[in-house]
Amino acid sequence: MSFHPPLATSRSMTGIPTGRLAVWWIIASEIVIFGGLIASYLLFRLHYSEWAEYASHTNTVAGAVNTFVLLTSSLFIVLAHQAAIEKNKEKAFRFIWFTIGGGGVFLLVKAYEYTTEIAHGYTLFANNFWGFYYLATGLHGLHVIAGMIIMGIISFDVKKGVKLERVEYIGVYWHFVDIVWLFLFPLFYIAK
């Protein structure tokens, strides 16, 4: 089925391309999803002093590695964006796949972390700290997976030089996922 974008898509009354505007609104709606979750967690964390003890069982090294990985992948996607502006298709393609690789490493570390924690008996049911831990990191992990899939799809268009502006849109989303992790890291791994 052939699909032709409507004229509406090409209009830009605000001066921001429609795709980027939509990504900003998506991020605003994501802020409230993660915000609600983090606010609930934080309240429980402050209320129950014993949660500090639970938090000491999270793997800080793994969390730190993941922070580093995500920061680096953020750099890669912004370099891909820069390459896309310079119409350097090959370079943009390469950096998108570096970013996807970063996401993959992140998920592997996460999988290792989950495995060891579950092996130690810290499952979703252990107590509410672990409930929130799995919920928040799991939701964040889903966002990482979604971002990787979208990047995988657009990378081949980018290689052909089609719709290069999408690199920027996915980049903005990816940085947001990074920022969420920047807050989850101290919340679950550092503050003890």
Partner: peptide
């Protein structure tokens, strides 16, 4: 959009 987020987390 601004109000439904916490409930989505809560619904999960």
């Amino acid at each position: 959009m601004a109000s439904v987020g916490p409930l989505i987390a809560g619904a999960v």
